[in-house]
Nucleic acid binder design. Structure first.
Length: 805
RNA sequence: GCGGGCGUGGCGGAAUGGUAGACGCGUGGGACUUAGGAUCCCAUGGGGACACCCGUGAGAGUUCGAAUCUCUCCGCCCGCACCA
């Protein structure tokens, strides 16, 4: 053993040994205690592994190493999410083909991941861009297509003018493109959708039973955004056969609906316009459609124009005007609302601007029936509402729905914020959607045995903005024959959303070598659902929701016997530097390579975990990492100094410290409190250094407990201690609760809530004995009035509180 | 606006009803040394008439006892955002 800690040499040595001996490859078929330890596979960017990746993977890897030492057969695979707009945009910018670019990036990532020292099962690595992988992505599409879950239909969709493709609702952040930050516009286009909304209720209700971080569950609940109410139909005054359907959560206020508002895109808009209003309506629609999503949302001003048409309020019987305004969204509900200005803030604002009547139909607290100066959107008692009068809001809602159903003018209805998942992309870098268009047969799926539909190798992969994928410009790809009638046909030229690739990758890992099925039924039964999944919060409503949907659908189609893919999910925190987010523009990005070189992976891993609670993240400081480097050095030297077979016996104090440390580290690792686990190990080390001689068992315990954090160093020290390879297959130490019981304890004495003395007393002393001891203390007696009658509160072995008042 | 999280030394953080500041960084002092920005040891919340007082964003409350529970307010971060 060398005299100085040389992380570079140690880490290189053991990484090679691990690879040769395959200690991290699980025996998938014969494993007795399968444990699937998953982390979010990275997108292999050109910049290389981000310190955020290192943080995420280290935390998950520690969990995996701990489970392995607890006797589990841990399967910890890794892969690359290499399709998608991000790589493609970068490739376009650099003028390099994405295929070339990604191949290089993946190599770099593999090298960095090796240096990180994760216990990855590399033989099961997957790359989503591999035809052997995306063949099955296409297969999933086909199953969904056959089940009617994948449908091509015309709908208002988000279009990113810069990426020149449509986007799913989840990929629009505050009206901007998730990938390139451009303003997104609405377009009415025919696209492929997965009908995720059919699963909205199950996706929502299952959350109650999932062991997932609450942040994620809350975000998904909000995103699904179920709301209950009614759909009501308002006939046109001029043409009672034609009705306008609206969705409302307040059917009880229907008597107060004094006008209707349609989204500018609503199909009835044209029909309603009169010769007088036609020009103004057309102009408003033109402007609204051209405005970016952000503009439409951003301005809270209530613009809109009168269409010229009137409808009849089926409750009040009054004729009410119909407006169009862009505060009504075409994509939600029915794209039309009944405006109740008295009880909705937005409608109130619109009515005020356009001089429309505001009627009060809900009395406020204390029976307030006065005219409204602002919208009253709370509950109350219905008024001026015919049969609803006098009913409190919840009952009035029910009554209104009953009336609507009886009269055939509406019914109970439920709506979701969640939209169907738009999965087609007018881009190059993704799996082609496996269908063909035949003039005779229509949309025909590509037969499964013809998969994959290979992504053609082309020179020009730049999107043209024609609304079509670059693949449309390749006749050899487009021109094909119909699988059904063998006549001429054209291929679908859109590719599927990148999030479809990642929605099932963990199903593929165990079966990565299977060329007969996407996932082998036996292996899947043995290894899934995933035991532990750790990843970032940013995927709360993207990846994590899509994945749940895909599993649920595959379950219903008979391919999986579970519907929830992840038994346990934990969201890790975010690393900042100097209190602010790391970003290239701020120039405060941590490059892991630099720290691997300077301190080694063990130090970087340990420091990242020490910064703060894993689920909360931390603040990276270049100085702070020194502390962990020193710590590992001290561990190295302590073991080295005592390694020469000393037969020293541990003191009672050392034994208690040992057991205490085992307990603390075990509990902290289980609770993902890696920072305090490391603190406990530091205290252990400090304690051992104070001892005149250190027992071999303490050295072994220290090394074992540190193994998940610093896998290379501990492997080296384990060997030095004469223990068999590998420390990562050794058993996690156990503690004895008996030993933890201290013989003497510090009992705190308080007088009227203030600390006055600390007494060293034998453990387990009764209240009377503690009182006697306390009353003998000068520090305590000084605060006791002569004549006071005393009251005592005793917490055994901890505290005695004396009350004089 | 809605939802979630957070606020503790010079800094990262510990303690979720019972010794506030574990552990680490930084800082000060000392040892070793030709030297050290290496290593080791000691000290380190503020004040002080040093057998004490104050102190966990601010204010109130509950309790023998509150960083922790309750209410009001202030500030910061994250997500969603005209969702009817």
């Amino acid at each position: 053993m060398e005299t100085t800690y040389d992380p570079k040499a140690i880490e290189r040595k053991w990484q090679a040994r691990w690879q040769e001996t395959g200690v991290y490859e699980a025996d998938l078929e014969h494993a007795k205690a399968p444990y699937y330890n998953l982390m979010m596979f990275p997108y292999p960017s050109a910049e290389g592994l981000h310190v955020g990746n290192v943080y995420a993977f280290t935390g998950a890897d520690i969990h995996g190493r701990y489970q392995a030492m607890r006797g589990k057969d841990v399967f910890e695979p890794m892969g690359f999410d290499a399709f998608g707009i991000h790589s493609e945009n970068f490739a376009i910018k650099r003028g390099i083909h994405p295929k070339t670019l990604i191949a290089g990036n993946v190599l770099h990532f593999r090298e960095q991941l090796r240096r990180l020292g994760g216990r990855f099962a590399w033989s099961h690595a997957v790359e989503t861009t591999d035809p052997d992988y995306y063949r099955w992505t296409q297969w999933i599409f086909l199953q969904f297509f056959k089940a009617g879950l994948a449908q091509r239909r015309k709908a208002p969709v988000n279009w990113c003018p810069s990426c020149k493709t449509v986007l799913a609702n989840e990929q629009v952040i505050s009206g901007r493109c998730e990938r390139c930050d451009s303003e997104v516009v609405q377009r009415e286009l025919e696209q492929w959708f997965f009908d995720i909304t059919r699963y909205a209720d199950r996706l929502l209700d299952n959350l109650d039973h999932l062991d997932w971080s609450d942040v994620i569950k809350t975000a998904q609940r909000n995103w699904i955004g179920r709301s209950d109410g009614a759909e009501l139909r308002f006939p046109l005054a001029q043409d009672p056969e034609t009705e306008i359907a609206v969705f409302t959560t307040r059917p009880d206020t229907a008597y107060g609906a004094t006008f209707l508002v349609l989204a500018p895109e609503h199909p009835l808009v044209r029909k309603l316009a009169t010769p007088e209003t036609e020009a103004a309506v057309a102009e408003y629609v033109r402007q609204a459609v051209a405005r970016s999503q952000e503009d439409r949302i951003g301005g809270q001003d209530k613009t809109g124009v009168f269409t010229g048409g009137y409808a009849v309020n089926p409750f009040s019987g009054q004729e009410i005007p119909i407006f169009i305004a862009d505060y009504v969204l075409y994509g939600y509900g029915t794209g039309a609302i009944m405006a109740v200005p008295g009880h909705d803030e937005r409608d109130f604002a619109f009515a005020t601007v356009h001089g429309l009547p505001i009627v009060r139909v809900v009395a406020g607290p204390d029976g307030d029936r006065s005219p409204l100066a602002e919208a009253y959107s709370e509950s109350g008692i219905a008024m001026a509402s015919g049969p609803l009068d006098g009913l409190p809001t919840p009952k009035a809602k029910e009554a209104a729905i009953r009336i609507a159903e009886e009269r055939g003018i509406g019914q109970r209805h439920r709506t979701y914020h969640l939209r169907n998942w738009l999965i087609s992309r007018q881009r190059y870098w993704g799996p082609p959607i496996p269908v063909v268009y035949c003039e005779k047969c229509g949309i025909v799926p590509v037969p499964e045995d013809e998969l994959p539909v290979l992504l053609p190798d082309v020179q020009d992969f730049v999107p043209k903005g024609t609304g079509q994928s670059p693949l449309a410009a390749i006749p050899s790809f487009v021109e094909t024959t119909c699988p059904r009638c063998h006549g001429p046909a054209k291929r679908e030229t859109d590719v599927s959303d990148n999030f479809l690739d990642s929605a099932w990758y963990f199903l593929r890992y165990p079966s990565s070598h299977d060329d007969r099925s996407a996932f082998d039924p036996a292996l899947t039964r043995k290894w899934l659902p995933v035991d532990s999944y750790i990843g970032g919060k940013e995927h709360a409503v993207l990846h994590l929701l899509y994945t749940r949907f895909v599993c649920m659908a595959l379950h219903d189609l008979g391919y999986l016997d579970f519907e929830e893919p992840f038994k346990r999910f934990r969201a890790h925190g975010v690393i900042v530097r100097g209190g602010t987010k790391m970003s290239k523009s701020r120039g405060n990005v941590v490059n892991p390579d630099e720290f691997f070189d300077r301190y080694g992976a063990d130090t970087l891993r340990s420091y990242l975990m020490f910064m703060g609670p894993y689920e909360e993240g931390g603040d990276f400081s270049d100085q702070g990492i020194e502390g962990l480097y020193r710590f590992l050095n001290r561990v190295y030297h302590l073991v080295r100094k005592n390694v020469a077979g000393s037969s020293a016996k541990a003191s009672d104090e050392a034994v208690r410290l040992r057991h205490q440390t085992i307990r603390r580290v075990t509990e902290d690792i289980e609770g993902l409190k890696y920072n305090t686990a490391l603190a406990a190990l530091m205290e252990y080390l400090n304690g051992l250094q104070r001892e005149s001689a250190v027992a071999q068992e303490d050295l072994r315990t220290l090394v074992l407990l540190l193994a998940p954090f610093a896998p290379h160093l501990t492997e080296e020290l384990w060997q030095a201690l004469g223990q068999p390879y590998s420390v990562h297959q050794a058993a996690w130490p156990a503690y004895d609760a008996q030993v933890l019981v201290a013989k003497t304890v510090t009992v705190v004495i308080q007088v009227d809530g203030k600390l006055r003395d600390r007494l060293q007393l034998p453990a387990g002393l009764g209240e009377e004995a503690v009182r006697q001891a306390a009353l003998q203390s000068d520090a305590v007696r000084r605060f006791l009035p002569e004549d006071a009658s005393l009251r005592f509160v005793h917490v055994p072995d901890r505290l005695l509180s004396i009350v004089t008042r």
